[in-house]
Amino acid sequence: MSARVPIAPGLWTDEAEPRLIGGRRADGEIVFPMPDGDAAARVEPALLSRQGTLWSWTTQGFEPKEPYSGPQPFQPFLIGYVELPGEVIVETRIVDAAPADLVIGMAMIFAVVPFDDARSIYAFRPERQP
């Protein structure tokens, strides 16, 4: 997996336990991703929590039209929002779960996973309770 490059630069940190990079606006509100261009003025990068709770989820069972550029043949995937407490609710892939496993409010943890043979993407997976 180390051979894969992030689907876009600046989305998450390059460290042993990577974190999403959001932006903190002047009014204190956190957004994701970090804006670029003029919209980045007065927004400071903010590293986001690796742990959160499931806010909502759905399945993507049909292949999206372009600009979707995922692997062929199409593999259905899960998508959702994860609330990072006190920070922001981020839209994300959900991995290592089936629809029947997912309950709104369950604990989730950050992961970087393959998107295709060349690129990686950020995701959250259910946090297994010991």
């Binding site: 689907i7 876009a8 989305l11 991703p33 670029d36 759905t58 993507q60 999206p64 600009p67 979707y68 550029s69 995922g70 995937f77 998508i79 839209e91 892939r93 998107f115 993407i121």
Partner: peptide, 14 residues
């Protein structure tokens, strides 16, 4: 950003 569409997140149905 482009990645939002490339990763299949930009669908009104979702």
């Amino acid at each position: 950003p482009d990645w939002y569409g490339e990763t299949g997140m930009m669908l009104t149905t979702q």
